[in-house]
Design a protein around this nucleic acid. Structure first.
Lengths: 118, 118
DNA sequence: CAAGCCAACTAGGTTAACCATGTTGGCTAT
DNA sequence: ATAGCCAACATGGTTAACCTAGTTGGCTTG
């Protein structure tokens, strides 16, 4: 299944699964095949499948549940909206602001960081 | 360096590097320390550092050049042209990180959380 | 001196192994 | 029959090893 096109296998698998999700072949809430099954289907090693899953998880397209499986995220029809750009810009500003404020808190209250970190 | 906070090490490292970039500690065009150096600095294995680098690469924050190094992406506004997905991914990670840190603060300062929240 | 080779670095892909942890269904013993 | 255990499966994190391939600087050789 995985082709030797120069594009690494774990990205090919991530692409394919991403497209199945976008195309509706894998519906929201539906479980993906298990890691082992995917490895067999794609004729790939467990490792590359796990890497692909990690990417999709990081992208938020899927949600893993230990012991059960990996499921297509339910709540993101937001990805279809037209004007994401403004939304992303606003989110970035909000994150930057939160980061700054949280850093001030952590700097002012090292006890919290100590308790959490060490 | 990597703390046992429940958040996996490769995400902690990705968080830290992402913040260095956003904060300007690592300027656009500037090379990151090599994988080996980062592993030593974070007291982590090469593997987790490589995983962290893969995430940042996937997010488009950095660009790797085989044989040379990994560099902070120069055109920071590139995300405006196509790939909102990577931008959203980065923001999601940032939010996860902020959430984790804020929860630690709240756990360490229950009085403050009570006063502010409920 | 100059050309070229080579060793030592770099990123990146792949695989395998080990462990922790959560779920589930079936079997066993009471 | 039921309660509880347990094996088989699941995700997820970590580490190590091996390989490809590009870069760079120094040394050797012509």
């Amino acid at each position: 299944m995985v082709k030797k096109t120069g594009r690494p296998g774990y990205l090919q698998i991530a692409d394919e699964l991403r497209e199945r999700i976008r195309g509706g072949l894998l519906a929201p809430g539906e479980p993906l095949p298990s890691t082992a099954q995917l490895a067999e289907q794609f004729d790939a090693s467990l490792s590359v499948v796990k890497m692909a899953m990690g990417i999709l998880r990081n992208e938020g397209l899927v949600v893993g549940q230990q012991g059960k499986g990996v499921f297509v995220r339910e709540d993101d029809q937001l990805a279809q909206d037209g004007d994401l750009r403004a939304e992303v810009t606003a989110l970035r500003s909000a994150v930057q602001d939160l980061t700054r404020r949280l850093e001030q808190m952590e700097a002012a209250l090292p006890a919290a960081a100590r308790k959490a970190g060490a």
